[in-house]
Design a protein around this nucleic acid. Structure first.
Length: 267
DNA sequence: ATGGTCGCTAAGCGA
């Protein structure tokens, strides 16, 4: 009996404002599990009933008022839930859920890594220091990951040359500095995880998930970055049969500055 | 060209 599961990850920059386009994602692509970041919504204000009406009865949230916030919305029941307060700042940036799949299970970790501010120097920029510490803590914790695992979310680092529109022009821009790229790679390899998006798109090809609101014409300029990621242990990654970045969603009505990423599993 | 645009929550912060 073949099991199939489609997972979406999307930084939606306010779940309440973006409900109409999350609904469009659901109607167009019918993901089984949706991982959202930057929900910007206290738990008591999360639009649970809107998602339940669309058939997503299992909703794990970790929100805070005004900033950050992650949510995992599912048609399948969760086997367990865990929330880790990385850097013990009280930020809502991590949510882990156990997902039943193909007679087995995997742990789906939904992350919103700190953006890190503008100045790429931890000595003078606390936000950048926080980002680096967050990545170091991820690497520490990931060293003991076991079982089937998938990591998704806005990791706020575009690690490879063709994850940005201009490698040379972005080397000193937060999200593509060498130290961040090295640390992100250390996180992924600490757990032995595969970069699922890059398994479908060769390293020589451009791959973006985010385009700034500030561009006059984001699509024409196409100065994108791949800030969103999907990683999995090799066995689970081997069950991924498709991956797509829904670039069109960046042009939907009142869009997020991130596009959703969809991965389909079959086993 | 050191700007530009968003969303929160009510002037400034974070992205």
């Amino acid at each position: 009996m073949t099991d199939r599961l489609t997972i979406a990850t999307w930084n939606i920059n306010s779940v309440r404002l973006r409900l109409p386009i999350v609904e469009k994602l659901i109607l167009d692509h019918a993901p089984d599990v949706i991982c959202l970041q930057e929900t910007k919504c206290a738990d008591g204000n999360f639009p649970l009933s809107a998602f339940r009406k669309l058939g997503y009865e299992h909703i794990a949230i970790k929100g805070q008022k005004g900033y950050h916030g992650v949510a995992t919305i599912s048609r399948r029941p969760f086997l367990d839930e865990e929330r880790i307060d990385y850097c013990t700042k009280g930020d809502s940036r991590h949510l882990s859920t156990g997902i039943p799949f193909a007679g087995d299970r995997f742990t789906l970790q939904n992350f919103y890594v700190p953006a890190g501010g503008d100045e790429p120097d931890p000595e003078i920029n606390d936000k950048f220091a926080h980002k680096l510490a967050f990545l170091d803590e991820m690497a520490d914790r990931f060293a003991s990951i076991s079982g089937n695992a998938m990591v998704v979310g806005d990791l706020n680092v575009a690690p490879y040359e063709h994850d940005v529109w201009s490698h040379k022009q972005l080397l000193k821009i937060v999200s593509h500095t060498p130290i961040e790229c090295e640390k992100l790679e250390a996180v992924r390899t600490a757990a032995g995880l595969t970069d699922v998006m890059r398994a479908f798109v060769p390293l020589e090809e451009k791959l973006y998930t985010w385009w700034s609101y500030r561009a006059k014409d984001w699509s024409a300029a196409d100065k994108g970055r791949r800030l969103d990621h999907v990683w999995a242990n090799p066995a689970l990654a081997g069950q991924a049969v498709s991956m797509q970045v829904l670039r069109d969603a960046r042009g939907w009505e009142q869009p997020s500055d991130h596009a959703p990423v969809l991965v389909r599993l079959e086993a």
